[in-house]
Design a protein around this nucleic acid. Sequence first.
DNA 1: TATGAATGAGGATTCATTCAT
DNA 2: AATGAATGAATCCTCATTCAT
Lengths: 200, 200, 200, 200
Amino acid sequence: MAKSGTRIQKKNQAAILEAGLDVFSQFGFRGSTIDQVATKAGLSKPNLLYYFPSKEAIYTALLAQLLEDWLEPLKALDRDGDPVEELMAYAKRKLDMSQHYPKESRLFANEIIQGAPRIGDVLKGELRALVEEVSDVINGWAEAGRIRPVNPYHLVFTIWAVTQHYADFDVQVRAIMGDVDPFDSAERHLDDMLRQMLSV
Amino acid sequence: MAKSGTRIQKKNQAAILEAGLDVFSQFGFRGSTIDQVATKAGLSKPNLLYYFPSKEAIYTALLAQLLEDWLEPLKALDRDGDPVEELMAYAKRKLDMSQHYPKESRLFANEIIQGAPRIGDVLKGELRALVEEVSDVINGWAEAGRIRPVNPYHLVFTIWAVTQHYADFDVQVRAIMGDVDPFDSAERHLDDMLRQMLSV
Amino acid sequence: MAKSGTRIQKKNQAAILEAGLDVFSQFGFRGSTIDQVATKAGLSKPNLLYYFPSKEAIYTALLAQLLEDWLEPLKALDRDGDPVEELMAYAKRKLDMSQHYPKESRLFANEIIQGAPRIGDVLKGELRALVEEVSDVINGWAEAGRIRPVNPYHLVFTIWAVTQHYADFDVQVRAIMGDVDPFDSAERHLDDMLRQMLSV
Amino acid sequence: MAKSGTRIQKKNQAAILEAGLDVFSQFGFRGSTIDQVATKAGLSKPNLLYYFPSKEAIYTALLAQLLEDWLEPLKALDRDGDPVEELMAYAKRKLDMSQHYPKESRLFANEIIQGAPRIGDVLKGELRALVEEVSDVINGWAEAGRIRPVNPYHLVFTIWAVTQHYADFDVQVRAIMGDVDPFDSAERHLDDMLRQMLSV
DNA sequence: TATGAATGAGGATTCATTCAT
DNA sequence: AATGAATGAATCCTCATTCAT
């Protein structure tokens, strides 16, 4: 797919991916042009296409890279830890990602909203399996009486929805909250919400 | 903007708006073509442009129509009703909208994710004012000890995030839950979540 | 070509021709649209096409009507009148036409500049013959010593050029002269010029 | 606006401008198509648009270039020269331009006739100022008794009108004069006319 | 590695004209 | 005599991609 040799190659690839993230996350795949990406990456269009064979290739590379980061926190959930703390830590990590990597979140959101044409398989495969595992863990905790009984799927969706909202709907959130930084108070709210929902 | 006379006009306009909703909600504004909309509406491209002067006009008409429906439930919140019931009813309405009007939700999400270029003003104006009002109501309830103290802004965001997630991330939700209809269990979860968060 | 029956028909035909003159004289044939003409004439597009079968037909009708008015003053030149007075009267009539029918002049100019695709034959036929006649008259006058010897063709061109300039280059003339009405002083200038050129 | 580097760029730009002059001068702005220009320039349409961003840009570039050439002779008028000779030299230069650059003249005429939408400002600014200066010079000459008293504005218009007529109304002039080259006799006529008008 | 040049396939929109009523 | 509806053929312009160097 992408070249992976000298320093300059790596530098340019990184620049392209970063630029691609900027552009694709804002305008979506079809709404973005190679020119935008190339300009932002400081390269000429043909030179950009020397590193990635097509617009699609850049986008796909971004998505692939993104997916790993996306799934990773879920894998870190420890069935032997304290249930409430574990879930709250997971939510916290997701919120941090929304704060520090909002473009990634929006890129992902864009892809899903449009029907996940490029990552549908991952969703139905790896992600589904992962969530199933997590679901088992949560169900185990509930059966053991260590958390309130909850539908594990919807619990996971809730954490995703709430945390990603601050990245994906950033414009709306800030339009409503004005100059107050949403993240200053969001964590507290999330904490409270989960604790209420889960604590026995 | 749009003609508004005879039967055939109304019929075609409606067909165009419906087709536009289909297409725009899936591909976003830039990712959609007039051809797609025209074909789906059963019209030729120039004939479609006989009813709406441009691609943008269709999109704008959809957004405008959508925004009203979007803001309306919030206005229905009754400060003299039972706090928990009022908020749960609101959440329920939002969830119903996600279930029955998922395309509208995705169209809206698309617009917001891309920076709300066309409705930024509404967000900062009418929506912000509305949420501020609601925030006052919620704060009043909390101060009166009728619900647990919560950050009203984040409470509203949470309700939005969770309910809209089922429409906007529909593909992902279904990829994970398989053949089970998410909405069958979502309401129960939402109910439980809000009751835990709010009941004193 | 055009219907010619009832009052209403005549009224509408006249309205169309007048509107066509307005539009065509400003934007040229290709630069004008039937819609512009129809709107200005207070008719619907299809109704306009009920009276004239095509855009071209309106334009042609205008040109034809115009040509007569255009050639007519030349025919009025009287070989038995006073040479200088005759020529000055002719020039005066042309100047008056520029003042009172500038659109007609511009329509004509447009057509000629673009190579006279529609009236080339008239130019090479009727107009040429007319000018030849006039040329004979002028030459006769010169030979009789009643005016200074001049090239009759260029004399005619000069009269055309100078008088039509005030209509065709109206914008430029007014840009340069500011609020002063060019026609107030133009006639005097024209008079002087011709008298100097022609008087023995 | 236009690239300005390598040989091939200069070559293609020149080809485009030349083709644009051909086409625009004949059909006007709206009546011309990019395709016509591209074909005449020996380029594909998108390749043409690689050099100029739009149809308008080509036209504007032509007009800008043209305007300089257009104003220049006027600046050359020398208040310290012999009045009649200076004015006749100016007229001669204008006539030469009509002979050798008729397309430029027609392009200009087209623009003015249609209301000078793109150069109205230049007309009201630079051109007006220039003519005002020239007007002062001519008035000075007249007051000094070195030429007959004339309205300087109309004198200038007359020179413009008569000389440009041979370019702008070329088709008509040739239709009337047949095979005789108008320019062979035009200069003589112009000379005579100005001398009669101006000599004391 | 890098870029200037070129192009085919769209894609939005315009517009003269036709059709049905 | 009039109009609402419809369309095919342009026409301007964009853009991913290729080619030559």
